[in-house]
Nucleic acid binder design. Structure first.
Lengths: 216, 216
DNA sequence: CTTTGTGAATATTTTCACAGCT
DNA sequence: AGCTGTGAAAATATTCACAAAG
C-alpha cells in the first residue's frame, strides 16, 4: 500500500541510506535474507520503525522470512535514485580534494567525479584518477557540457563563497561544502555543510556528563 | 531554573554547535546582540525552538533586546565543554589526514591535534604542522602519555577496524571514523561515521521528485 | 514457529500565540 | 515599540502488540 499518494516524512528518506549501507554489507557477506530485527541490531534503528519506513514504498518483506537482501537493496536504490550513475564536479584538488576523488564510498553508490577544478597552474591539465583538472573559470562551460547538477567544494575557506556562486550560476542543484566557511546559495540550490567538528563538539557534552573527561 | 536536573533532549545538544557557529560568525562581524528570529534566519531553525532550547540551560536573553552575542557564545561553549582546549589524536597522515590536520575548524573550537600516527616509514619522524608523526605501534604509549580521549581515523578502509581497536584499547572515548569502512567499538566508546555520501544519497530523492527540500 | 505489516498508544518535537519585561 | 520565555496545541516520531501470512 501507500506506494505513492501521501508525502513520505523526511526522516524516512534520511534513514534510507543507512538501510542501504547495511544491506550492501550483508550482500557482500553473501547473506540472502534479513529480518527487520537483524537490521535493527546493525543500524541501531528500532525494528518496527524500519518496517514502517519500508512500507511507505511498498510491501517488500515475506512474513516469517524477512526481506530479500539483494532485492531490497535494489528497491532502495531505485527509491533514492542511486540505481543510475550520477556525475559530480569537484572543486579543489589539494589534499582534501585528492582524498575525496579517491574515496571509494562515492563509487560504491554510483557517483562519478566527472570534472575537477583547481586554480593552481601546476595542477591544471593533469589528472586526478582519470579526471582532468580544469581552471575554475571553465566551471560554467564544463558543467554545462556534462549536465552536472551536484558538486563538492574543497577549496580554501576564503574561496568557498565565490566557488558556490559559480557553481550555482552553472546550474548545480546540490553542493556539499567541505570548507569551514558558511556559505549561502540561491533558492533551489541545496548546500550541505559537512563539518565534522560539530559532531566532535556535541560529543564533548556527553563526555563531560559521564565524567570521562578531566574537569580541567 | 532547570540549569541541570532534568535530562536535556539529545536534539537540543545536537543543535548547540549550530547556534555556536552562528554566534561566532556574528561575533566576527562585530554584532553585539541578536534576536532568536535573526538566528532562525541564519540557521534555518525555528525561532521558538531556539528560545526553548536555550532555556534548558538558563535565561540568557533580555526581553525586548535579544541575546548578547559574545556572552551567549561563551555560555554555549561552557555547556558543550569547548571553552577548554581538547587534544585529539589523528591516525593516518595521507591526503585526508593532512587535510584534517590543516583544517582550521578544529582550532577554532579549541581542538588541538596533539598526536599523529602513520605506518608509512617515509612519514614517521616528520611533522604535519607542528606535530610529530609516530608509528601506530606507539598509539597506546603516546595517547596514554597525553591523556587523549578523542581520535580521528583517516587510514585506508581495511586498516580502520584495527585502528579503532588500538585506539579503544588505549582509552580513547570518542572516535570519528573518516573511512568508508563500518567499524565497531566496545561499550563506552562512541564511534561517529562521517560519511558525506549518505547526505548526497538522500538529496537524490528530492532532486528526482523535483521537490524543494523543506526550507533550511 | 517466525516475521511482516499495522492499528493503537505513547512519547517527543515543533510550532503557535501571547503575557510580561525592557 | 521589540523580544524573550512559556503554557497549550499541533504535528511527528517512535514503540507496542498482535492478527495474518509463510
Amino acid at each position: 500500500m501507500a506506494t505513492k499518494g501521501s508525502a513520505v516524512p523526511e526522516g524516512v528518506i534520511e534513514r534510507l541510506p543507512a538501510y542501504l549501507n547495511c544491506l550492501m554489507d550483508l550482500e557482500e557477506e553473501r547473506v540472502a535474507t534479513v529480518s527487520s530485527q537483524r537490521m535493527s541490531d546493525l543500524t541501531g534503528i528500532n525494528a518496527a520503525e524500519i518496517r514502517r519506513d519500508l512500507v511507505h514504498f511498498g510491501s517488500f518483506g515475506i512474513k516469517g522470512v524477512g526481506y530479500d537482501v539483494k532485492s531490497l537493496a535494489g528497491r532502495i536504490q531505485k527509491i533514492l535514485g542511486s540505481d543510475k550513475p550520477h556525475r559530480i564536479a569537484l572543486v579543489g584538488a589539494g589534499n582534501l580534494g585528492s582524498a575525496i576523488a579517491k574515496y571509494d564510498g562515492l563509487r560504491k553508490h554510483g557517483f562519478e567525479i566527472a570534472a575537477i577544478f583547481d586554480k593552481d597552474p601546476a595542477r591544471i591539465g593533469k589528472r586526478l584518477g582519470a579526471t582532468l583538472i580544469h581552471h575554475p573559470k571553465e566551471i560554467d562551460q564544463v558543467i554545462g557540457h556534462h549536465g552536472i547538477y551536484m558538486a563538492i567544494v574543497a577549496v580554501p575557506p576564503d574561496a568557498a563563497q565565490r566557488t558556490v556562486d559559480q557553481l550555482a550560476a552553472a546550474g548545480v542543484k546540490v553542493i556539499l561544502n567541505y570548507t569551514s566557511a558558511r556559505v549561502t546559495a540561491p533558492d533551489g540550490v541545496q548546500v550541505h555543510n559537512s563539518d565534522p567538528v560539530n559532531e566532535l563538539l556535541y560529543t564533548l557534552y556527553y563526555l563531560r556528563s559521564r565524567k570521562q573527561v578531566p574537569e580541567g
